[in-house]
Design a binder for these strands. Structure first.
Lengths: 206, 206
DNA sequence: CCTGTAACATAGCGGTCGCTATGTGCCGAT
DNA sequence: ATCGGCACATAGCGACCGCTATGTTACAGG
């Protein structure tokens, strides 16, 4: 019956759901524990304060989500540039309408909390930096394998790519339509093409 | 002594400052009225509810700010594409460190409120749509005057450009450094170059 | 000068929130 | 077998928040 890991996991999971939908400060501890099927006593047993739940969300949930969505899929492609294009399209197709209107969870929490709590800021910046660093790693690999223009700076390009990935989620959230996402995809692909050395059009109609 | 317009303006202005720094829901009416030098009675005399202040912020303050920063400067350039590049760099230089760490006010409020209140969503989307529409107008002008590749879709390109403008503010807010902004500028310029017909490098060192 | 109304000011209510103080029961170690 | 501590549950406190009910004052119109 007693299962600490599971209990903590349920709180974390319910916490993510509510924070994703309503924002961190708009979500009350009572809502989270009700959804998780535990009491407030359990909550404050695992997290000294509500903020500490947010920190755990960043460290554990958001980081893992970012890697799963944006980094790990790239391992399957020989050409990272093409991999990024294909992955972006696949992600676009796999995202539900609800997720489209909710935006990127990492970006949401960052916009809400980073300028108001330095601990949030540090942890969320950490996730973003890892995202950029892993992207940069694949860009360097692309350069080493001759898939990418060797003159472009991989770090700056990685920052720009991640910006587009987060930015498109933000604008789609606001405009709320899959059609807008297509415009973002076109621009994303066109930019990747412009730094690619291969002239294979990565996404043109057959 | 009695000056209704001024009083309302002071509330609106103080409201903007606090909402920009802390977010909408984290800002209390008492904070706003204290900063504006009025009482809560005055506040609720002009705004039936706290949300109505937010609506006025979107309709009046944020819309005007967007036009001033992103649209009106473009009128000074014969070549809109070059205008966008130069304007972006000027904006980057004119932005203070504090503003850099606070991000784009429109994006902040959108991320916080649009998925939780449909009226906010409508009004903020309206500002964003106007931003895109005006950008599209200048892109069409650029095409008509032969400055831009006539094959690219101006609407989609406008959406993509606004996404980059908002996205770069978001990522700079999170990473917090002027150096990151430079990466965004490089990417922005490189994309604009790729849709330009003129081969004049718009931002190279003299 | 009078008066009605717009332009504010004051006090307080009902509700929620984060958090804590204080329990209680299970379960492994001795 | 017991016993200490971990894993929760319950109740409630103090603070704050949005909002309202009820004034009070300045000023324009007659």
């Amino acid at each position: 019956m007693r299962d600490p890991e599971r209990t903590r996991g349920r709180i974390l999971s319910a916490g993510f759901d509510y924070v994703y939908r309503q924002g961190f400060r708009a979500t009350s501890v009572s809502e989270i524990v009700a959804a998780a099927g535990v009491t407030e006593g359990a909550f404050f047993h695992y997290f000294p304060s509500k903020n500490d739940l947010g920190y755990a969300l960043a460290d554990e949930v958001l980081r893992e989500m970012m890697l799963d969505r944006w980094i790990r899929p790239l391992a399957a492609y020989g050409n990272p540039i093409k991999g990024m294009t294909v992955r972006y399209r696949k992600l676009m197709e796999a995202t539900t309408d609800e997720e489209l209107s909710l935006g990127c969870p990492l970006n949401n929490l960052t916009q809400e909390m980073s300028s108001v709590d330095p601990v949030f800021s540090d942890k969320l910046r950490g996730v973003l930096l890892e995202w950029i660093k892993e992207t940069e790693r694949y860009l360097k690999k692309a350069q080493a394998d001759g898939y990418m223009n060797p003159e472009v700076d991989p770090r700056r390009t990685a920052e720009f790519l991640v910006m587009m990935e987060e930015g498109s989620a933000a604008i789609v959230k606001s405009l709320g339509g899959r059609k807008t996402y297509l415009s973002m995809y076109e621009g994303f692909r066109s930019y990747l093409d412009s730094i690619s050395t291969r002239r294979e059009k990565t996404g043109s109609r057959p």
